[in-house]
């Protein structure tokens, strides 16, 4: 039987979709909109630092980054192919998209170590 990586990519996509849905809106609301607009004060750097110092938070952050990026990569791959009719370059597009997600995960891991 022909092996296909699609089931694994879809699981990463789905997991990323759930994680992105649950976590990203509140984070971008706080750090991207409310704090820059001055509606909410920026927390003290030490407070955020203390949050990031806990190992479980660090591991969780790397997982969240990898999953969210795989989610985005999967959708960007399929949508670009459907929008621009470039499905014949699927292998290249897939390598670029998922490669970007892996690269982002490596950056996150390096930051956290």
């Amino acid at each position: 039987m022909r092996r296909t990586p699609e089931p694994y990519l879809w699981l990463l996509f789905s997991g990323g979709g759930v994680v992105a849905a649950l976590l990203l809106p509140v984070l971008v609301l706080l750090f991207g909109v409310l704090m820059p607009l001055g509606v909410v004060d920026w927390p003290a750097a030490e407070h955020l630092r203390a949050l990031l110092d806990s190992p479980p938070v660090r591991v969780a952050l790397v997982v969240v980054v990898v999953l969210c990026l795989f989610h985005a990569a999967h959708r960007v791959r399929h949508t670009s192919e459907e929008l621009f009719g470039i499905a014949r370059f699927d292998v290249v597009i897939a390598l670029l998209c998922y490669g970007g997600a892996v690269a982002g995960g490596v950056v996150a891991a390096v930051l956290m170590v």
């Binding site: 022909r2 296909t4 699609e6 089931p7 879809w10 399929h78 949508t79 459907e82």
Partner: peptide, 11 residues
């Protein structure tokens, strides 16, 4: 069903 042009083609 477990093929790129089968269920995995669906977006």
């Amino acid at each position: 069903l477990n093929l790129e042009d089968s269920v995995w083609g669906c977006t």
